[in-house]
Amino acid sequence: MWFIQFFKSSIGKKWLMAGTGCCLLLFLCSHAAGNATLFYSLALFQSYADQLHSHPLIVSIFSTGLLVIFILHIITGVLLTLQNRKARGHDYKVKKRSSPNSTASSTMIYSGLFILFFVLIHTYVVSFGDHSQISLTISYLFSSFYVIVFYITAFVVLAIHLSHGFWSMLQTFGVNHPRYNTMIRSLTYIVPAFFLLLFTAIPLLFLF
């Protein structure tokens, strides 16, 4: 099949990674919008959660879709890492990187797995928790210093992941043009910084 052929190719896998990454980024946007209600009040946040869960069909379709995309992103990522290690073969005695932002690009698999770990815990505690009491749950969670540290760490890692991921996604889609590259370069830092600020502000809201 032509599309299987495509996704089996190196560029196809890249596209799969970038495509699923793009969906996850969009999800992150909607999640961020939902969370932003917290800046107004806990009550508004609770009503947003209630509203959302009053449409179980929509929620289940979206969360299943999200799960599939998430799993695809992880599987492709792990597969690429394994294949690429094999293609690299013998490693160098002196390992040195010359490219910009190599910290992020060389640790995508680790930052990715850490985010997975966070998502699993987040899902267990929040998503499978009692939705009717969600505002209480998070108030309770964010009263713990360790939870806050873990939460902030997770979003720092996400920001690092995105600082390569966002640019990488555009490059994979072929978005590379001298006229727009300066803008793309700044977006590479603006996008992760935006999510980092927004999400880490929430626990700090509870702290002060």
């Binding site: 560029i11 690429l80 690299r88 010359s98 490219s99 910009p100 690009s105 043009h177």
Partner: peptide, 26 residues
């Protein structure tokens, strides 16, 4: 291997070939 946009190639290329060529190939 598969490209993951690490940009090492561009950094070491003795002829300064740009990864915009990879984008174009994509």
């Amino acid at each position: 291997g598969n490209c993951t946009n690490e940009r090492e190639c561009e950094a070491v290329c003795p002829k300064g070939i740009s990864i915009s060529n990879i984008a174009r190939m994509n």
